[in-house]
Structure formats: C-alpha cells, structure tokens
C-alpha cells in the first residue's frame, strides 16, 4: 500500500447551484482529519460570455458573473473561517468540465469535491462524469439532497453526516488499496467504516459457497478492516452478491452509511485517469456521495 495520504487541501468546485453551501458545510468535519484549506472554485462557462457570433467576448458580463460568484464565496469564507479552516477563491472563465481537473492539479488539491446541490435526478450527470473521466486526484461526488427510488417508492436522502460512517467498496485491486489509504487519512472524522466486497459470478457458481463467503470475509477483515482499526476507527466487513453497484448501494443503505468510497479502476486508458463501469454506475445511481480514488496519485 502507498504511504497514507493527507487531506490538507480541498478544491470545492461549484456551479453555485441550490444547496451548494450545505454540501460545503459537510466538509468542515475533515478539520479533525487534518484539513487546513478549502479552495472555492467556480468556472464561468466560456460559452456564457465568449464567442458572441460575429462579436467577441462579453467582458462586462464576465465581470458581472465573476463579482456575483465572488460575493457568494466571500460569504462562504466566513463560515469556513468560523470552522477554523483557511480558504481561497479561484474564479475563472473556461470550460467547467475540462478545466476543473487541471485546476485541482495546479492547486495541489488532495481532494476534489464536485456535484450539484439540486434535489432531484441521478447523482451524476454528464458534467460530473466528464470531470471524473479527466481527474487524476480523488474526487468526492457530492449531493446534499438526493432523490432515489427504493422498493418502488421515491425517497429523498439528506447527506449531512457524510464522513461519520463511510462504506469502502473493496475488490483487492491497487485502487482499492489506495481508497483504503484515503479512508485511513480521514480517521479523525470517521467513527466507524464498513467494508463490502461483492462476490463475482464465478464464486457464486462454485461448489461450497458458504466456505467461499467465510474465506472472503476473513480476507476482507485481514486486508482492510485491520488497517482501519489500527487507525483508530471501528470496522465491519460485509459480503454481498449480485450486480456490484446495486449491491454496494444496498449495503450502504443497510448499514446506514454516509458515503461510499471506491477505487477508480477503469481500464480504458492505462496511462491516464479512467472511470470503471462500477464506479461510473455508482456515481450515476447512488443517492450517497461517492468518493472515487484513483490507483495512482498523479500529484
């Protein structure tokens, strides 16, 4: 496993939507885990102020949007300061999807927080997924209020205590190890962590399923839970079977988790950031905030 990372600086990228501040507030508990600075970031979409057909650039409009975001951010900084955390502001004109990942690297952020504050729809839209595909630092896809469907009913989940009880989705991969390290780095903010592994189809068809389950449980405890407990947190292991993303979410519901942590294990591009199908699906359908940790720290 790599050295334990620290979450000292967070880049909070926002489109200043509804409930964005509520999402921001949920991060303050990370001060107990060593958080020192939050960089508030807003990208004014280039298309909103540039490329006026046969015109050029709406300088005044860009300035107005910059001021608007600045006033809001200054207000937020008071709350951040009240929590004993430093803050800075980054407001740029650019491409929100393409530029956020680059700014996270430039600002040497340990964690990028993105997501909409809206109340409805899936957790991640094309905007969020676009950022995830490009990002080389851990990303928390956050939504303060998320609507979801369970047992045919529509419910709304308030994601307030995000870090209290995270659920780590583990599959023995280097990315999972990295996600574990990241979980350990949040020790001061986490009380208890769950670890879940979803059994694959081959194991389900094996001769002694119960024995396999017990072996996996033991392995899960040894490889992940012991490390978590050594960091001063409680840990519990779970084995599930079925469609991975659905089962991880189901486990999160059953243990009352605040968020899901997973390794970004995409294989589409070995040399660059990638988003695997499970992590992609988790972001799409989960009502829980999802923290994706790439296998290699690009910083």
């Amino acid at each position: 496993m790599d050295g334990v990372p620290k979450i000292e600086r967070i880049l909070f990228a926002t489109r200043l939507g509804e409930m964005a501040f509520n999402s921001l507030e949920t991060l303050f508990v990370l001060k107990a885990a060593g958080l020192r600075e939050i960089v508030l970031c807003h990208i004014i979409p280039r298309e909103d102020v540039g490329f006026v057909p046969f015109g050029g650039y709406l300088r005044k409009e860009a300035e107005r949007l910059r001021q608007e975001a600045g006033i809001k951010f200054e207000d937020w900084r008071q709350a951040i300061s009240g929590a004993g955390i430093e803050s800075r502001i980054v407001i740029e004109v650019g491409a929100p999807v393409q530029d956020v990942a680059g700014i996270a690297l430039r600002e040497q952020a340990d964690l990028l927080v993105i997501g909409r504050g809206g109340r409805i729809g899936p957790l991640a839209g094309s905007h969020t997924l676009g950022i995830l595909r490009r990002c080389r630092v851990p990303v928390l896809v956050h939504r303060y209020l998320a609507r979801f469907e369970a047992e045919g009913e529509i419910a709304v989940k308030e994601n307030r205590l995000v870090f209290e009880k995270p659920l780590l989705a583990a599959d023995w991969s280097p990315a999972s190890d990295r996600a574990l390290s990241f979980l350990v780095s949040m020790a001061g903010a986490v009380e208890k962590a769950g670890v879940v592994h979803v059994i694959d189809e081959k194991a389900l068809l094996g001769p002694d399923l119960e024995n396999t389950r017990q072996q996996l449980l033991t392995r899960l405890r040894q490889r992940y839970c012991d490390t978590i407990e050594r960091a001063g947190m409680k840990a519990e292991a779970h084995i599930a079977a079925g469609q991975p993303a659905r089962e991880i979410i189901e486990t999160a519901r059953s243990i009352g988790a605040g968020m899901i942590i997973a390794g970004a294990t995409g294989k589409e591009k070995p040399e660059g950031p990638a988003l695997g199908s499970v992590s992609h699906r988790l972001c799409e359908i989960s009502e829980f905030p999802v923290l994706l940790v790439p296998a290699i720290d690009a910083r």
Partner: peptide
Amino acid sequence: FMVRSIAE
C-alpha cells in the same frame, strides 16, 4: 470573432 474572443 473567435480569435477576438479567445484573445480577450
């Protein structure tokens, strides 16, 4: 106008 926009 594209050049002007990018330059500005």
